[in-house]
Computed example of a mutant assay.
Amino acid sequence: MIDEQDNVYIFNHPMIQHKISLLRDKNTNSKSFRELVEEVSMLMAYEVTKDFPLTEIEIETPIAKTKTKVLTDKKVTLVPILRAGLGMVEGMLKIIPTARVGHIGLYRDHDTKQPVEYYCKLPANADESEVIVLDPMLATGGSGSAAIQFIKDRGVKNIKWVCIIASVEGVERIHKDHPDVPIFCAAVDQDLNENAYIVPGLGDAGDRIFGTK
């Protein structure tokens, strides 16, 4: 189940909320953290794909012929933002195994403070597919908005943003810059600290996924 608020879809399913609590816990080790990120991503994929179109076909069961529904030949591209977004890919692929995977990497320029693209590799004809951008955290929204724009610059029009924790500020930034992009998340936290970390958040998702801190 989800709560929908102004193109923001907040997952309130008990299993997801339980796993979010474990992700927030500073005592959760990297192995468990990675597994939880994958599990939450897999559970979120059910709702993220709820608008995928179906077509009716006829099959034969061991008992009789029947008409049933299958997914249409819809192209889907997952685009994790390096590096933390990589932790969400496998969970999504378990539900959308035919999805292709691109990657985008950003860094913040020391002088201008603006996001700079250092890597972007999308599958061929990504502009003809639905692109699901993955990043566990949506903090200030600056890098997220830039990533969406970089993808749009390559002709992509159908984009969804999927994260685990968002901040109010981040949501507002994406809405302001890209009102056409729906946001899917498991929680929206109110504050950012002086280092632009979400409060209470869950810390640096990349460090916790890869055990680099």
Rank of each mutant, 00 (worst) to 15 (best):
T66W: 06
K67Q: 08
K69D: 14
V70Y: 12
L71W: 13
T72C: 13
T72F: 11
T72Y: 08
D73M: 07
K75G: 14
K75N: 09
V76G: 01
V76C: 07
V79C: 11
V79Q: 13
P80D: 08
R83W: 14
R83K: 12
G85A: 13
L86K: 07
L86E: 14
L86C: 01
G87K: 06
G91L: 11
M92P: 05
M92Y: 15
L93D: 08
K94S: 09
K94D: 15
I96S: 11
P97S: 06
A99N: 05
V101M: 03
V101L: 09
G102L: 09
H103P: 01
H103S: 01
G105V: 03
L106I: 13
R108A: 02
R108P: 11
D109N: 15
D111N: 08
T112D: 08
T112V: 04
K113W: 15
P115F: 10
V116K: 08
Y119C: 09
Y119W: 03
Y119G: 03
C120F: 04
C120I: 10
C120A: 01
K121H: 15
L122S: 05
P123N: 01
A124V: 12
E128G: 00
S129E: 15
V131L: 11
I132N: 04
V133Q: 06
V133P: 00
V133N: 06
A139S: 07
G141F: 05
G141Q: 08
G142F: 00
A146G: 02
A146I: 02
A146H: 12
I148W: 07
I148F: 04
Q149W: 03
F150T: 07
D153K: 11
D153N: 14
R154V: 00
V156Q: 01
K157S: 13
N158M: 01
K160Y: 10
I164W: 01
I164F: 01
I165E: 03
I165F: 15
A166P: 00
V168L: 01
E169I: 01
E172T: 00
R173S: 06
